[in-house]
Design a protein around this nucleic acid. Structure first.
Lengths: 144, 144
DNA sequence: TTAGATGCAAATAGTTTGCATTTGT
DNA sequence: ACAAATGCAAACTATTTGCATCTAA
């Protein structure tokens, strides 16, 4: 492990967790996959890189990454299983079409200010956020 | 059904769905429960009101309500099962403590403006949103 | 060195399904 | 009247667990 640590790997370390092969592999799969993957896709990607990594470790890694606000499980569509979204700089924003379940991502929107205000007012320490809008995408809007 | 329809019931009708006993009961349980319930809690509340309502219908109702942006499944804590949140006026905002999983709700924050801007720019029709912040609550912050 | 993390496979539990029957409109 | 929704219970499938072993720090 002579190479520089990725920011996310560093956050694991800083929080007192070990940088294990399983965890780093899950992280890599999420990053390569664009950070918008179901657990099944992550499991698949991981075992493609290394058959020896167990399913349980993948779930444990996903839980840990969630705990650290590095990823966030969210529901897209009707499926009962979540999609994990990377929170690149601690945040993420998207629109979910409630009809075709397409996801449209968009850039930031000045939530830092709200975040700072909440921290001051409620005495909390915020590390990230997710903003989801629901509605009809252009195509479904036209079709309706 | 001579009484006035609740706004939410009306939305079901308007979308072409029937106002069945099962659906209305699920809605009522969610409303009475404060709109922050796991599927287990909803199932429990429903069968408390009417034993005859089947589990499957509850899940089907939750799916439908989600489709209509009346509720939104979200992950609190580490549990694999979602918590359903009512989107009272189409939106909801909360802070989730990543350590103790406490949920702190807060009031609006001027997202209507962003919403309008996105609608214009992306040609979509938005019906609601959910804004989640992640971080440490006051208690966990002090303890750390 | 040693607490923490892993892999395995069995156990669990939450959700979905198929279909005959009932219900809302 | 009749399409839509229901209840049932069986079938599924994703996730979790317990534990002996291994490994990162």
């Amino acid at each position: 492990m002579s190479e520089a640590l990725s920011t996310r790997a560093r956050r694991l370390l800083d929080a007192g967790h070990k940088l294990t092969h399983a965890r780093l592999t899950v992280l890599r799969v999420l990053e390569d996959g664009g950070g918008h993957m179901t657990s099944a896709e992550v499991l698949d990607g991981v075992s493609r890189l290394d058959t020896a990594i167990g399913r349980a470790s993948v779930f444990r890694a996903l839980d840990l990454l969630t705990e650290l606000s590095i990823i966030r499980p969210t529901y897209i569509g009707t499926s009962m299983t979540p999609t994990y979204v990377l929170l690149p700089d601690g945040h993420h924003h998207h629109i979910i079409c409630t009809h075709c379940h397409r996801v449209i991502e968009f850039e930031d929107c000045g939530l830092e200010q709200i975040s700072a205000e909440l921290e001051a007012r409620l005495h909390v320490k915020l590390s990230g956020h997710l903003l989801e809008f629901y509605g009809l995408c252009e195509a479904c809007l036209k079709a309706s």
